[in-house]
Amino acid sequence: MTEPLPDALEQIKTDFRELGLKDRLQLLLEFSNELPELPAHYLEHPDLLERVEECQSPVFIFVEVDDSDVVHLFATAPKESPTTRGFASILVQGLAGLTVAEVLAVPDDYPSDLGLTEAVSPLRIRGMTALLGRTKRQVREKIAA
């Protein structure tokens, strides 16, 4: 039996699934516009961010795990790449406030469950899957350190 999705990720999935294809793309664009800006310390040190090579557009992420085992994901993607920005924003918002265990329990195929496979290229879905995979890898590295 698989673990239930955390509430925010479940709600995002439901929001996408309840829409028609065209409206799903519009929702992805809305997420793109909601990607939080990077904190100043990452703007000043872009070397701390990891490039997600699988994404067609330049996407960079960094994960922090605080003393309460809560994961914080930071991401940046160009405004001219709304699909990629949207995917990054979904993860930043969907993982916000989750514990290490909750993040690691998110199914690796979550991006495919959003109902966007008919709307965007498989390469883009692979990019979002890679974003999630790299996030989990960084979380594992942080807790092992």
Results as ranks from 00 to 15, higher is better:
Val65Ile: 05
Gly97Val: 12
His72Val: 13
Arg85Ile: 08
Ser68Lys: 15
Ser68Met: 11
Pro82Phe: 05
Asp67Met: 13
Asp109Thr: 10
Glu64Val: 07
Gln93Asn: 13
Pro78Gly: 05
Ala105His: 00
Val65Phe: 03
Ala105Trp: 04
Ser81Ala: 14
Leu73Arg: 02
Gly86Phe: 06
Asp113Phe: 15
Leu114Asn: 05
Gln93Glu: 12
Asp108Val: 15
Val63Asp: 00
Leu95Trp: 03
Asp109Arg: 13
Lys79Val: 14
Val65Ser: 04
Asp69His: 12
Pro82Cys: 08
Asp67Val: 15
Ser112Asn: 12
Thr99Asp: 06
Leu73Ser: 03
Thr84Pro: 02
Thr83Trp: 10
Pro58Lys: 08
Ala96Lys: 13
Pro82Ile: 00
Phe60Lys: 12
Val100Ile: 03
Val63Met: 06
Tyr110Ser: 10
Lys79Ser: 14
Leu73Pro: 00
Val70Ala: 09
Phe87Gly: 11
Ala75Thr: 04
Val70Gly: 05
Val106Ser: 02
Phe62Asp: 10
Glu80Gln: 14
Arg85Lys: 13
Asp67Arg: 15
Val92Lys: 02
Gly86Tyr: 05
Pro111Thr: 06
Val65Asp: 00
Glu64Ser: 11
Val59Glu: 04
Phe60Met: 08
Thr76Asn: 05
Phe62Tyr: 14
Ala75Arg: 00
Leu91Arg: 01
Gly86Ile: 07
Val100Ala: 14
Pro107Glu: 10
Ser81Gln: 06
Leu98Tyr: 09
Phe60Ala: 11
Tyr110His: 10
Glu64Leu: 08
Ile90Arg: 02
Pro111Asn: 11
Val92Thr: 01
Pro58Ser: 08
Val100Tyr: 03
Tyr110Arg: 01
Pro107Ser: 15
Leu73Cys: 01
Phe74His: 13
Asp108His: 15
Gln93Gly: 13
Asp109Trp: 09
Leu98Ser: 03
Pro58Val: 11
Leu114Trp: 06
Lys79Met: 14
Ala105Thr: 07
Asp108Leu: 13
Pro107His: 08
Ser89Thr: 06
Pro107Gln: 10
Asp67His: 14
Val103Glu: 02
Ala88Cys: 03
Ile61Lys: 00
Val71Lys: 00
Phe60Asp: 04
Gly97Ala: 09
Glu102Pro: 08
Val65Glu: 01
Ile61Ala: 02
Phe62Ile: 14
Asp109His: 14
Leu73Gln: 00
Val92Ala: 01
Tyr110Gly: 08
Val65Trp: 01
Thr99Ser: 13
Glu64His: 12
Ser68Leu: 09
Tyr110Gln: 07
Ile61Leu: 10
Ala96Ser: 14
Val100Cys: 04
Gly97Thr: 05
Val106Gln: 04
Thr84Trp: 04
His72Gly: 07
Ala96Phe: 12
Gly86Asp: 00
Ala75Pro: 03
Ala77Phe: 09
Pro82His: 03
Arg85Asp: 02
Val92Arg: 01
Leu114Pro: 02
Phe60Val: 09
Glu80His: 13
His72Ile: 12
Pro111His: 06
Val103Cys: 07
Glu102Gln: 14
Leu104Gly: 05
Asp108Lys: 15
